[in-house]
Design a protein around this nucleic acid. Structure first.
Lengths: 189, 189
DNA sequence: CGTCCAGTTGACCATGTTCAATACTGGTGG
DNA sequence: CCACCAGTATTGAACATGGTCAACTGGACG
């Protein structure tokens, strides 16, 4: 029997882990860093559908991946054989249950994200901060290990608008940029 | 043992089937009509996260429903005990597998929808038409049994913009309004 | 020190929103 | 059968939010 899991593999920021359309033999477990799931359109526009943080298990598409899976920061990712894991789950209701809850969690997060589609740039970003804060466990100051372009493409706004939004929130005293790049101090979110 | 499934229940357009926050004892099977899953914000804005068509099984939240479940047209919906169905699935890998695929399908659709967040009003509506067409099985002419407000709130645009978008697509020959209200004839989508 | 890349800022422009007026539809009662 | 009404859709004109393009800043790295 082939190994179910390989040792975690290192990817550098912006490396492609799996392409849209690739056969989905593996699911992914983020060990460290941030992974993005995204699609780039013919006109060059890009949608970042989701970010995955350490501990997140994802990539159950159908036969093939629906989105490109890429490193949004330097990451360590473990690849796990889908068939092997599914087979295991058949024999273990505990595991099957766990996997169900993983997928349901992702569905719920994606729905919450979709629910922000009506909001203004500012509110989309605030919703993003709240989500990131709760998922990463950082509440007071929050370390975004990823680029502004990724965040903008996730929120459906342009990087320039994101920049202005952050500046605006800073002026209103809702948050503060810190000396360490990518770290925001949340005051009243 | 309590009945797993009640007979389908009739709801009229805009009736609430379950409130956000209600304990999620039941999952829902759409028998006829269209159901929407949505959230209304304090300012009156609303997000329609998803539509469910006949045959769709949904509502696996956590303990409580995350969104309000409402009739987007007159509908027939069967309520199914969640605990009962889960228990059954424990003993039947076939059923467990089926339920997994149902949730994965919904996740995939939600991700596709989230990926449209970057698009223009026109492209969001076209994506919506394609999705609706493939899910309903209507390809040539398509019967939207739901109000424009629901579609607009799903796409994150205003009803007026949707109207203008349809008019514009009609002028460009991509589709045509028909005499039957809510029925669009697709020419080149 | 110079290059490269990411982010910020400014001025102008485009897309979609707002508000208000008008049309259409289906149901109700005279 | 028609008149009326309520809810829903369409259109127009002024406005706002975010997009575009371009210039500039500031680190990281060679």
């Amino acid at each position: 029997m082939a190994a179910l899991r390989t040792g975690p593999i290192r990817f550098r920021r912006n490396q492609v882990i799996a392409c849209e359309g690739d056969t989905a033999d593996y699911v992914f477990l983020v060990v460290s860093g941030v992974v993005r799931s995204c699609r780039t359109f013919r006109n060059g526009d890009r949608s970042v559908v989701a970010f995955y943080l350490p501990g997140d298990l994802f990539g159950w598409g159908n036969e093939t991946h629906s989105f490109s899976i890429e490193a949004a920061s330097d990451v360590m990712v473990a690849l796990i054989r889908r068939r092997g894991l599914s087979a295991l789950a058949e024999g273990s209701p505990r595991l099957a249950n766990f996997l169900r809850s993983v997928v349901l969690n992702e569905l719920h997060r994606t729905q919450e994200h979709a629910a922000t589609i009506t909001m203004s740039a500012k509110n989309r970003f605030l919703a993003f901060l709240r989500d990131w804060s709760s998922r990463s466990g950082e509440s007071k100051s929050i370390r975004l290990q990823i680029g502004h372009q990724d965040i903008a493409d996730h929120l459906g706004i342009k990087m320039e608008t994101l920049s202005r939004t952050i500046t605006e929130l800073e002026r209103s005293g809702a948050l503060a940029r810190t000396s360490s790049p990518g770290v925001l101090r949340l005051m009243r979110i």
